[in-house]
Design a protein around this nucleic acid. Structure first.
Length: 532
RNA sequence: GCCCUCGUAGCUCAGCUGGAUAGAGCAGCGGACUUCUAAUCCGCCGGUCGCAGGUUCGACUCCUGCCGGGGGCGCCA
């Protein structure tokens, strides 16, 4: 539809003697009285054409109306010089057929075909449970991966395990202390889970090895409950053994971007936009966290990905320039490396802030959260808004089984639609094949609105993928749910007063809407139960 | 001090690559079930889009400066 309109607009421009701009913008007006599509070409080309926008627009309208593209009912000039396209309802009826034909693939696209993407997210240290703060990144990364796949990218998901370094020593020492019935060392881990895990630990176990395995088991389990799984849990320590860290350093040296000074080894990251050079190997001979990180990303590129997307917490955003510099220093296009920063989550209970602190005792684990509200509510809550902005989550609202909680609003919309099939089966009613159903009886606002929203999904998914913004899918799902509730309320399907023809058409509309809800929720990783 | 990020209705947030009269949920007020799930629907109330300039046909959106919140500025991870 878009393409046909754009090409018709280009033809009209040529016909009136105005050169086509490189891109013809076709917008979806916010107001329905402005039509289904709108273009600003007359405004944009007015200067080049040397004519007033409205006059140029009027000429375009005359051309377009003389030979209207399919489904175009009326073309008009509006406002300062917009050209608005009003489409026939038959267009929306065609949308219904498209949705039914596409089924679960409705909304998917091809924008990412041929491109391999690696999404790395969570990557929490293996020193404790995943907490409520990590969960935002977990849900975001998982949903982003789903959306990128929907537009054709080949996507892998990884969790980077920082199982090397001081924090592991501290963690092991804390476990050992608790196992011996002592307090953790100064600066150690204080959480109750340390005591619990220490009690499980066999006497002859190595606290570091055992502790890491215990933490990873816990993380894997609870993320699994949330519907989040990874293709690989990439171990930092593994790179010590494989020599990947040494190889990376040699590579950097060979590229001449490394200096030896003050007994340490430095990456001249300032040559690539960082604000200071960074130490790779400390003067005591230990590598910093940065070098293994670089080695990991070098490994990712070596595996042939076209794009690396890292999801980091806000507290790490200061590392973006040095990582980007390192990637450029390795000879890669910095544009093939993206970092999405997820802003902090503030948890409240009844207006009171609940601190998420790893060292203190009142840690809210993801396990606790899921136990209280279930995975669906956790996911939808986190996906409600852009990760660019700090999020405030009121646990009382998430827990509430009420209309304050959007997850029920959306799931109920689908459950209501599914109930139509159930009740129909009880009553022995039969839905005829779509090919033999006349959809032109769908003329009510409530019916058409559902179709208008459904029609947008491919664009929404494409946009959500391009902007790495799963919350746009959430917004769409809520819009569709609202349209469905309105339809359900005003347009009875199985009621005896509903004429047979209309019942068949509405029934198929309900089926298409349910498909839309299921597809949208699947992209968010939220379930779509048949009944609530 | 420098860097990043956010600032939109009483609260929590949307607002597409700049578009036409800035939207939704909650809260508040008032309505709607002899019907497939009322966890729903409808109406009303509610805004100097932090402030000030700039760019242009047009700015919540882009640029600059300021104000305010959060985060970051280690040979820690």
């Amino acid at each position: 539809m878009r393409d046909e309109l754009i090409s018709a607009i280009r033809d009209a421009l040529t016909a009136v003697g105005v050169p086509s701009p490189d891109v013809v913008e076709l917008e979806r007006p916010g107001r329905r009285e402005h039509g289904a599509f709108s273009t600003n070409v007359a405004l944009a080309s007015a200067k080049a054409a040397g004519r007033p926008p409205r006059e140029l627009a009027a000429d375009l309208v005359a051309r377009l109306e003389a030979d209207p593209p399919p489904f175009v009912q009326r073309v008009e000039v509006a406002g300062p010089g917009f050209v608005n396209f009003h489409l026939d309802d038959a267009w929306l009826h065609q949308v219904l057929r498209s949705v039914v034909d596409a089924g679960e693939s409705w909304g998917s696209g091809t924008a990412g075909t041929g491109s391999r993407v690696l999404v790395e997210y969570v990557s929490a240290n293996p020193t404790g449970p995943v907490h409520a703060g990590h969960a935002r990144g977990a849900v975001y990364g998982d949903s982003l991966a789903r959306i990128l796949r929907a537009v054709g990218h080949e996507v892998d998901e990884e969790f980077y395990v920082n199982d090397r370094g001081v924090q592991m020593q501290v963690f092991a020492a804390s476990l050992a202390a608790r196992a011996a019935g002592e307090e953790p060392p100064e600066g150690g881990y204080q959480g109750d889970y340390i005591t619990e895990w220490a009690a499980e630990m066999p006497a002859d176990a190595d606290p570091l090895t055992w502790g890491e395995a215990r933490a990873l088991l816990d993380q894997r389990e609870v993320l699994g409950e949330l519907g989040v799984s990874f293709d690989d849990w990439f171990s930092e320590r593994r790179m010590v053994h494989t020599g990947a860290i040494d190889t990376t350093l040699e590579d950097l040296r060979a590229r001449g971007v490394v200096d030896d000074a003050d007994g340490a080894v430095w990456l001249r990251s300032t040559e690539f936009g960082d604000d200071k050079d960074r130490v790779l190997v400390k003067s005591d001979g230990e590598v910093t966290y940065l070098l293994p990180d670089i080695a990991y990303h070098r490994d990712k590129f070596a595996r042939g990905y076209d794009l690396l997307v890292d999801v980091w917490g806000a507290d790490h955003h200061g590392y973006v320039p040095r990582m980007r510099a390192a990637i450029e220093a390795l000879g890669h296009d910095p544009a093939s490396f993206e970092v999405v920063i997820t802003q902090l989550v503030r948890l409240e209970r009844g207006g009171e802030e609940v601190r998420i602190s790893k060292r203190s005792g009142d840690l809210i684990t993801l396990r606790d959260l899921i136990g209280e509200v279930g995975p669906d509510a956790v996911r939808l809550t986190y996906l409600l808004q852009s990760v660019d902005s700090p999020q405030t989550v009121d646990l009382d609202v998430v827990v509430a089984q009420s209309n304050e909680n959007p997850v029920y609003y959306v799931q109920m919309a689908n459950a209501r639609l599914r109930s139509i099939d159930r009740v129909a089966a009880e009553r022995g009613l039969e839905r005829l094949p779509l090919a033999s159903v006349d959809l032109s009886v769908l003329v009510a606002e409530r019916e058409l609105e559902v179709l208008r929203v459904l029609e947008l999904l491919p664009e929404v998914v494409e946009l959500a993928a391009r902007e790495r913004a799963p919350h746009k899918v959430t917004t769409w799902v809520r819009d569709l749910a609202a349209a469905v509730h309105g339809f359900y309320h005003d347009c009875p399907v199985l009621h005896p007063d509903t004429p047979d023809e209309l019942r068949q058409a509405r029934w198929w509309l309900a089926a298409a809407a349910s498909t839309g809800l299921q597809v949208g929720l699947e992209l968010l990783g939220v379930s779509a139960p048949e009944q609530l």
